[in-house]
Simulated assay, not measured.
Amino acid sequence: MPQLDTSTWFITILSMIMTLFFIFQLKVSKYNFPENPESKSVSTPKPTTPWEKKWTKIYSPLSLPLQ
């Protein structure tokens, strides 16, 4: 019964890995990635209320002068 010759396995596996790497690089290089990805700003319109235009001052009981 002849023995299995394993002397070429290293070069075969190495060339397979390199080939897969190059194929993967070629596949990935076809995609167009954005250079500077920026998040979209989500701004909700602020509702206008009539009391926002007026100047009001709220007095708390502790800030009133002593009598």
Results as ranks from 00 to 15, higher is better:
residue 12 T to M: 12
residue 21 F to D: 02
residue 43 S to E: 11
residue 40 K to G: 05
residue 18 M to W: 09
residue 39 S to Q: 05
residue 13 I to C: 12
residue 18 M to N: 11
residue 18 M to Q: 14
residue 12 T to G: 03
residue 29 S to D: 09
residue 28 V to Q: 10
residue 33 F to E: 03
residue 25 Q to R: 07
residue 53 K to A: 15
residue 55 W to Y: 11
residue 29 S to W: 12
residue 36 N to T: 09
residue 16 M to H: 03
residue 1 M to F: 11
residue 55 W to P: 08
residue 64 L to Q: 06
residue 20 L to W: 08
residue 25 Q to F: 13
residue 9 W to C: 00
residue 11 I to V: 14
residue 37 P to G: 10
residue 62 L to S: 14
residue 22 F to N: 09
residue 22 F to Q: 10
residue 46 K to R: 09
residue 58 I to Y: 04
residue 34 P to C: 00
residue 5 D to K: 00
residue 37 P to D: 02
residue 32 N to E: 10
residue 23 I to C: 09
residue 5 D to P: 00
residue 22 F to E: 08
residue 27 K to W: 14
residue 26 L to H: 00
residue 32 N to V: 13
residue 5 D to A: 00
residue 36 N to G: 02
residue 62 L to C: 07
residue 51 W to P: 00
residue 20 L to S: 10
residue 29 S to T: 07
residue 57 K to L: 03
residue 55 W to D: 15
residue 67 Q to K: 11
residue 59 Y to C: 00
residue 3 Q to N: 14
residue 61 P to S: 06
residue 63 S to Q: 14
residue 50 P to A: 05
residue 58 I to E: 13
residue 11 I to H: 06
residue 23 I to S: 07
residue 58 I to L: 08
residue 1 M to T: 08
residue 48 T to E: 09
residue 14 L to W: 14
residue 17 I to K: 07
residue 61 P to G: 04
residue 9 W to R: 06
residue 7 S to A: 06
residue 49 T to K: 05
residue 46 K to T: 10
residue 38 E to T: 09
residue 55 W to R: 13
residue 10 F to Q: 14
residue 19 T to S: 15
residue 40 K to S: 08
residue 42 V to H: 10
residue 59 Y to S: 02
residue 35 E to Q: 08
residue 27 K to H: 11
residue 52 E to R: 04
residue 15 S to M: 06
